[in-house]
Design a protein around this nucleic acid. Sequence first.
DNA 1: ATAATTGCAAATGCTTTGCTTGTGA
DNA 2: TCACAAGCAAAGCATTTGCAATTAT
Lengths: 135, 135
Amino acid sequence: MSSIEEKCKIKGVRLTDQRKLIAKIMSEAKDHPDVDELHRRVSAIDKKVSIATVYRTVKLFEEASIIDKHDFKGGKARYEKSPDEHHDHLIDVNSGEIIEFTNEEIEKLQKQVARKLGYKLVDHKLELYGTKIKD
Amino acid sequence: MSSIEEKCKIKGVRLTDQRKLIAKIMSEAKDHPDVDELHRRVSAIDKKVSIATVYRTVKLFEEASIIDKHDFKGGKARYEKSPDEHHDHLIDVNSGEIIEFTNEEIEKLQKQVARKLGYKLVDHKLELYGTKIKD
DNA sequence: ATAATTGCAAATGCTTTGCTTGTGA
DNA sequence: TCACAAGCAAAGCATTTGCAATTAT
């Protein structure tokens, strides 16, 4: 059983064949697929799953905090399974490749900035866009 | 003449009545209007300006680095005139209000993170989402 | 003069939804 | 059993675009 499927059980999300399949594929994904790509991977195993179901399922998983949605530049939403520890993203503007990173210092400073402005931080988005340095 | 209109002159952007009007409204805006809101403000002065022209113009201004586009949560793009000094945004998740802030420390750390990963930072996005702390 | 710009409406691309049929607990 | 989910096609929403008419330089 995939890790996402387990989370569904815990959260009382009803499991259908389609959802199990999407859960499995998202659990195993090492990248950040958009809905089209996800549907492509799903279809490779079960052609009958409609893209509407993929849309409904990623939304469901996202609302249950089982997967995370990202709106990187490019128009289409991309997803990844919710990580155990938070991380941010650096996007290679040439290749589209996404590198994950964490930086405690920045996290801390964000909270400080928010507090100083009179706010409690409930969410944040940090995306770095860069070009590879040739060595 | 509005500050955006001046930049257009400098960059050789052809100035039409519509563009002058949009330039003026964006120059004076103290918030981050979306295209609909911008069109509403433009229409209050000249009803004949179409929303297609507003779309074309914000795109043109953005590509000329005269205004900045933001994709905050909510689906529609929002714009502000390019500031002299860079800043980031904190969005009040309850009211939608946007507070601008700068933090040199965070900026520096971002560059460091990118470099450490083998990248040159060409752009970045930092958005904080928070709730007001009652005092 | 003439290449660029506008307005309009139609087209686009991603995402959501109504409805009927199918199905998990 | 039966409330919920899936499939399909149609609808929605923000944004873009083709084309004929208009305009800035």
